[in-house]
Amino acid sequence: MTTPPMPPMPPTGPPSGPGGYGAAARCAMLTGFFVLRRCGRPAAAHCPSCTRAVCPEHSGPDALCSECRGRLAEHAHDPSWTYGYRRTHYENSSSVYGSNTWYPDFDQHDRNAFEAGGGDYGSAPGGDDWAAASGDHTGGDEWDGSDTGGDWDSGGDGLVDS
């Protein structure tokens, strides 16, 4: 099996962001699963599928970037699986929260949502409205016996409710 040729890097040109073409092109891959950050290492090639600049670490033997390879990975056995599953997970979580605007913001296609070259977490406006929820959680993590019903409580088992 032959490896497809790596797309050439444009020699010059004004950089247009972390993934832009230019002498100082940086890897545009978004790393992490929950703590998202741009890779930012010097780019060595461009992904033939999405044309983003990628560093050697995020470029596989088939020249595809980790994210494009992850999209093809079906199982966690593939090291690139997290890159593909991140998108699936965030898209599915929109249905969990009943909102289609929150988690998709974190995706790589909205790279402008993150500060250039950063991605570090910062302060958010509206700070302490969470304080009302302080204290230990009341999520019922101890066995409270409240759900000991089910099919056992239906007649015929010979059990006596105590």
Partner: peptide, 24 residues
């Protein structure tokens, strides 16, 4: 991942001034 991810929604990343939304 859903339970863990909830904790990271409480510390959102900084947003730039203009954030284009991806068409869905």
């Amino acid at each position: 991942l859903t339970v863990t991810g909830e904790l990271f929604r409480w510390t959102p990343p900084r947003r730039s001034a203009a954030t284009p939304r991806r068409a869905r």
